[in-house]
Structures are given as C-alpha cells and as structure tokens.
C-alpha cells in the first residue's frame, strides 16, 4: 500500500468516527458537499480528530485551501514525512 493510500485509509477511519458511520466511504475527491453532516462545526471536530490521529497541527493557511479530502491528505503526507 502506498503512503497516500495508507493516509487515505487512516483519514477514512477518522471520518467514520466523527460522522458515526463505520461504513463511510471517502476518496480524494470527497468534499463537504458530499456528506450532509459535514458542516462548519463538524469540520472543526474533524480537523481536530485528524490532527490528533496523525500527531500534527494544521495551519489556517493550509485549512483555508482544503477543497477536498485529497488536499488534506497532501498536507498530512508532507507533515508526517517532514
């Protein structure tokens, strides 16, 4: 499994926990509009959960450019490898 696939799998497990849906399926193109519960409040919870899971901290300049899950994964990969 590539690093990117591994990150996506781990991000999916965080989504499953935050959105209380063990069967949730996400891809790199999944965006807020695809998940009805993904509002500003859950976004805050989601980011905090992702940060906890990977032991990283996002900067606002990164967060404001997240358009989908893929954008988030790119930043995660950079942070955990750096």
């Amino acid at each position: 499994m590539s690093t990117q696939q591994d990150i996506l799998r781990r991000v999916q497990s965080v989504f499953a926990q935050v959105f209380k849906d063990p069967d949730i399926s996400i891809s790199e193109t999944t965006a807020a509009k695809d998940i009805p519960e993904w509002d500003s409040l859950n976004h805050t919870i989601l980011l905090a959960a992702v940060e906890d899971h990977f032991g990283i901290k996002f900067a606002l300049k990164e967060v404001m450019r997240f358009k989908n899950v893929g954008d988030m994964c790119v930043v995660i990969e950079r942070k955990i490898s750096g």
Partner: peptide, 11 residues
C-alpha cells in the same frame, strides 16, 4: 457557498 464557511471567510 461550497466548502467550509469559516475557512472561506478568512481567505
């Protein structure tokens, strides 16, 4: 409208 509002607002 799309995306996460507070992040868009700051941008």
């Amino acid at each position: 409208n799309e995306g996460i509002k507070y992040a868009q607002i700051y941008r």
